[in-house]
Simulated assay, not measured.
Amino acid sequence: MLLECPDPRFQDGTFVMLIDGGSAEESEFADQSTGRIPLADYLATRKLTHIDVMANTHIHEDHISGLLPAAQAFPPAVLWMIPTAAFCCNEMQKLDVSLAQNTSQRKFMQAINDCQTLCRLVEDHGGRVETPVAGSARHLCNGLRYQVLAPVTERVEELEERLRQIFAAPKDVFLKTLDSVDCRMNNFSLMMLLDYCGTRILLPGDTNRVGYGGIDPAMLKADLFKVGHHGQIDGADQALIDRVQPRAVACCASSDRRYNSAHPDLLHMLKESGAELFFSDCPQLPGLDIPPHQALIFTIGENGSLTAQYL
């Protein structure tokens, strides 16, 4: 997700924030029929000159790995990362990806390796690595404010301990330990509420419906909701949708609907709530006719207007 906000205090008069980067694997972009392109290629089309804040919501390959080429082209001034910079740079260990016995294990090991590489790259270029935790909030630029809803500090510490268990695991239980952390990673996601001149945007990373515990329900109300976990059936339920009350929903589903992304039952619930549905890809589902596109662009006005277009 690329945010561009006008503010004369920043380079070229624009504050630029990048949240997650998609995959870096060529196979993810082999099908040209949807129009999808790698993040680095898209950034080139925008003629960007800088990134002020780069955020990775969690350590999965389809969220972190595409950030590496973006950071190489535009080293960010600040990187938001879960877990902490000290852990990423000093305790993360490179894993031997050849040990993987399936695609999920290979991708997760690659994500862990890329996490360390990304943090060191940013610091080597003079940037800062920060760990936002629940409760932190501030203005990012003119009109744009953020508040972190998750994770709390204790969850950050728990994630670091689980990663240590991977690095310390004996060979005979290494893959089992890896899988255990992998399946829990989504609910360690950085969850943010952005507010631009009164228009609220809820960005939960891959948090699923059970990962909202402890969050003030009033904080979840949003005009634009990026539904969690790629719109899989556990991404939201009716109770969560009722709390969010979105005007528009963005679903970031892969074209081939791996793992049943853009689940029809969840999409039906969202549509029945009155929200308008948009997709960052072109899932092949009955009743959907989404034009091939490189990006889904939302424009938010100071008066609360919210419009969307497929580029």
Score class of each variant (00 low, 15 high):
Asp256Glu: 11
Cys252Glu: 14
Asp52His: 15
Leu144Trp: 03
Asp256Thr: 09
Glu272Pro: 00
Ser280Tyr: 00
Asp281Tyr: 00
Val78Glu: 14
Ile59Asn: 05
Cys282Phe: 00
Asn102Glu: 10
Ile201Asn: 04
Gly304Lys: 10
Asn102Leu: 05
Ala222Lys: 06
Ile290Lys: 08
Lys171Gly: 09
Phe188Pro: 02
Val97Leu: 02
Leu277Ser: 03
Ser104Trp: 12
Asn303Lys: 12
His125Ile: 05
Arg106Cys: 09
Ser280Arg: 01
Thr57Asp: 07
Arg120Lys: 14
Asp114Leu: 11
Leu67Ala: 05
Ala70Gln: 02
Thr199Gln: 05
Leu140Asn: 06
Met54Pro: 07
Cys115Pro: 00
Lys94Phe: 12
Leu140Cys: 10
Ala55Lys: 03
Pro75Cys: 05
Val249Phe: 03
Glu157Ser: 13
Pro151Thr: 02
Glu61Gln: 14
Ala308Ile: 04
Leu277His: 03
Phe188Gln: 09
Gln105Asp: 13
Leu175Ala: 08
Asp265Thr: 07
Pro292Asp: 12
Lys47Asp: 04
Lys94Met: 13
Lys107Cys: 07
Glu130Ala: 08
Cys5Asp: 00
Phe74Glu: 03
Arg258Trp: 12
Lys221Pro: 00
Ala308Arg: 10
Lys176His: 08
Pro204Met: 08
Ser254Gln: 09
Asn142Val: 06
Gly231Leu: 02
Val156Tyr: 05
Leu270Val: 09
Phe279Cys: 08
Asp182Phe: 15
Thr117Trp: 04
Asp12Asn: 13
Ala30Leu: 13
Thr117Phe: 01
Asp31His: 06
Glu130Tyr: 01
Gln72Cys: 03
Leu140Glu: 13
Asp206Thr: 11
Asp7Thr: 04
Ile215Asp: 03
Asp182Gln: 15
Leu267Val: 06
Ser305Phe: 01
His125Phe: 11
Phe87Pro: 07
Pro38Asp: 05
Met81Lys: 08
Thr34Val: 02
Gln245Leu: 10
Ala30Ile: 12
Ala134Met: 03
Glu158Met: 12
Asp41Ser: 15
Leu220Met: 12
Ile82Asp: 03
Leu203Thr: 09
Ala71Tyr: 05
Lys47Ala: 06
Gly228Ser: 03
Leu2Cys: 04
Gly274Cys: 11
Leu67Asp: 02
Gly198Glu: 06
Glu26Lys: 12
Ile215Gly: 03
Ala236His: 05
Lys226His: 13
Met269Asn: 03
Cys183Ser: 15
Pro38Cys: 04
Ile297Glu: 13
Gly127Ile: 11
Ser104Gly: 13
Glu28Leu: 06
His229Cys: 08
Pro38Leu: 06
Asp195Ser: 10
Arg184Ala: 14
Ala111Tyr: 06
Ala30Met: 12
His230Phe: 09
Met191His: 04
Pro76Tyr: 09
Asn208Met: 08
Pro8Ala: 14
